[in-house]
Design a protein around this nucleic acid. Structure first.
Lengths: 253, 253
DNA sequence: TAGATTGTTAATCGATTAACAATC
DNA sequence: TAGATTGTTAATCGATTAACAATC
């Protein structure tokens, strides 16, 4: 069934937000954590769980968990808690983890190898459909059972994938150095991926319709060092009282 | 000079926020990108740059860039743009990248190796002061010139670091599987690190005073697949008009 | 002075929390 | 019914943007 509905955006009812699955990023991040928790609970034989229990184990407010779950499309839950099995399925579905996601990985260095070897991704539906590198020394070597191919042959390889297996990869994973990232991205889009998962510390210019998610380890490192910096500096926070050092040349007083 | 100042938090003046360096996370992430841009500009011989120029290259609003820079403590900039050299130094300082950060890395697999080998981190001040793994086959092997040691010998190793080189590592990097992450974290805290950089998909319980920054590749993957999901689903957004598919069993109408 | 720029306050937008109604 | 729970609206908190003043 397919509907066209016209609603004033500013006064959109709650369930509509649900139905359009307009989930925001912080919610998605948390949903993956709930999923991990729920899968562990399932193996322990737990069949029903309350949002307070989930919230507790992540130091979150129960309301936030409820909201996240409702964003994920978990409606009509019984009033004595959520059923673990259903919840797992609903979250998986809302994340797009209920079906295979075929990906091409370019850059067979340590980072690329780590991604290929990590079983966690496979459990979330990631299928590495091809690995490529420009280094001839790597061509033909195996990573977790997958052969590494020449990056130059990617077009032809993907044609083969489509004709022989009916697979057209949706995701391109970039684990090459920053200076070749754009070039790789362009080629990946050329062979038809709709999304780029970028591990290179580079800003990519991509067509509007291409989804891009970047993992920036440097940004993460910055958050870490900045927090250490905060601890080191005299700046302390006690109620309303500040204690801090001033540069002697400072004009602020 | 060291001051104690008492200010009502709700009505804190702008420059005070500056001085306490209470920078928020999104700002820090962006500052690393500005830094990359500025370093590249510097090598091209650019000496002065306006915030609009920076903003433009990242598709951000110039005001946001100005605010970020002001958070980073860049005050008293001339009115014809920021001086590139000063700006780089100020950002590096505000991120804590103006001095060495000594780290112990536990888990010498592909991910750990990728971190050790990536020169980008070294440029931001990261010094790998020791690599450890529980796998005896790895003991004594070299990663980028660093020897891998037995995890069991970490206490003794760190003692040696302190006595011989006067180095006490502040950061512990965890690149082990999820099920041993907590154990590794406990040991790292025991040997005196003040911050944990966690790459394992596990929630760690840590003392309050320990800084923790987690890199969750699964969360990133979820954001990617969810966005693909959004594209796939019939849900489209045209002005105020929705088009979406309804489950035939749905009670919503 | 005009133009280009920075810096600050106020307004908006987005995400989380508080309060409470509804249900089993 | 009382207790435990979910689901929703309103309020708060945080981050970004708009508007504008100030400066070279």
């Amino acid at each position: 069934m397919r509907l066209h509905i016209f609603i004033p955006l500013d006064n959109r009812p709650y369930y509509m937000v649900n139905n359009t699955r307009n989930v925001h990023t912080p919610s998605i991040r948390r949903l993956t954590r709930y999923l991990r928790f729920l899968r562990a609970a399932k193996t322990r034989g737990v069949t029903v769980v309350s949002c307070s229990r989930i919230a507790e184990s992540f130091n979150l407010s129960p309301v936030l968990v409820r909201r996240d779950l409702s964003f994920a499309g978990v409606l009509a839950a019984p009033k004595q808690g959520y059923r673990v099995n259903e919840l797992i399925e609903d979250i998986e579905q809302s994340l797009g983890w209920d079906h295979k996601t075929h990906a091409l990985l370019v850059g067979a260095g340590n980072l690329g190898s780590a991604i290929v070897k990590y079983n966690g991704f496979r459990e979330q539906g990631l299928n590495i459909a091809g690995i490529f590198d420009s280094d001839p020394n790597l061509h033909g070597t195996l990573i977790n059972g997958h052969k590494v191919f020449s990056f130059e042959k990617i077009v032809e390889y993907v044609k083969g994938l489509k004709s022989e297996y009916g697979i057209s990869p949706d995701v391109g994973i970039i684990t090459v150095p920053a200076d070749s990232a754009q070039e790789v991205a362009d080629k990946l889009i050329e062979v038809g991926v709709r999304a780029i998962w970028n591990y290179a510390p580079a800003r990519l210019s991509l067509p509007e319709n291409i989804v891009c998610e970047s993992v920036s380890l440097c940004e993460s490192f910055a958050i870490l060092t900045h927090q250490l910096q905060m601890q080191d500096s005299g700046a302390t926070f006690k109620g309303h009282e500040f204690e801090f050092s001033l540069d002697p040349n400072s004009t602020i007083c």
